[in-house]
Amino acid sequence: MSRIAETFARNRASGRKTLVTFITAGDPQPQVTVPLLHRLVEAGADILEVGVPFSDPMAEGPVIQAACERALQHDVSSEDVFAMVREFRQKDQQTPIVLMGYLNPVEAMGHERYAERAAAAGVDGVIVVDLPPEEGEDFNRALEARGLDLILLVAPTTTPARLQRICDAARGFVYYVSLKGVTGADSLDIDSVTAKVEEIRKVTELPVGVGFGIRDAESAARVASAADAAVVGSAIVRLIGENQSDIDALYDRVASLVGEMRRAMDATGEPA
């Protein structure tokens, strides 16, 4: 069983909702990323989503765009990201890591080589924002051959026919993008999220994570009550941007926000 599947299974068994946290690798500096990932786990994150910086992040709002720009000032490459994951794995062999990025850096390295390097570093899954299943068959095969999950997105605009197709190709978990827009946009509508999560559950056994629009502990808890996992990105990355000149404060404030989210999710979770 993959680390992602194990995490969901363990959490499901204990009645714990899964908290997925996102940071961009190398933001605000490369040496911050690995210690920050450990702090996220200590504060209650179950799965770590790590952004691979890209020059043209089309699906991101201003907060994560700025994070990409900060990381790229240090020329953080895909190989650098793999090195960070390897370093993280020296102390933590349990927490799943999912890379999130755009297709062009993958193309630059080549699908096979990217999958090979990611697997060797200890990555568990990959999200490629601009790679729909129709175009992703080659890369999906390359990942699957090395035991990595290609995690696919479902949107509010996804039709029933596409939903079936996406869920057939998806592994790890299904990531529901809770609103029409970019990352960090307005807060989500919990009723429509609940309805869509139910629709997704009718066509797949995979766990469902919900992201985009989770800004605080309360919205994390509300999403967690409807889905298997809450994915938090811009709220964390905003704190990183605000505290980039004081790294100790950065660690503490991010840990504090994630801790609040953890507690709020645990408080609404059903008892085991």
Partner: peptide, 11 residues
Amino acid sequence: GRFVAETLMAA
């Protein structure tokens, strides 16, 4: 081809 985020696919 068509390399876009899922939200745009239906559009």
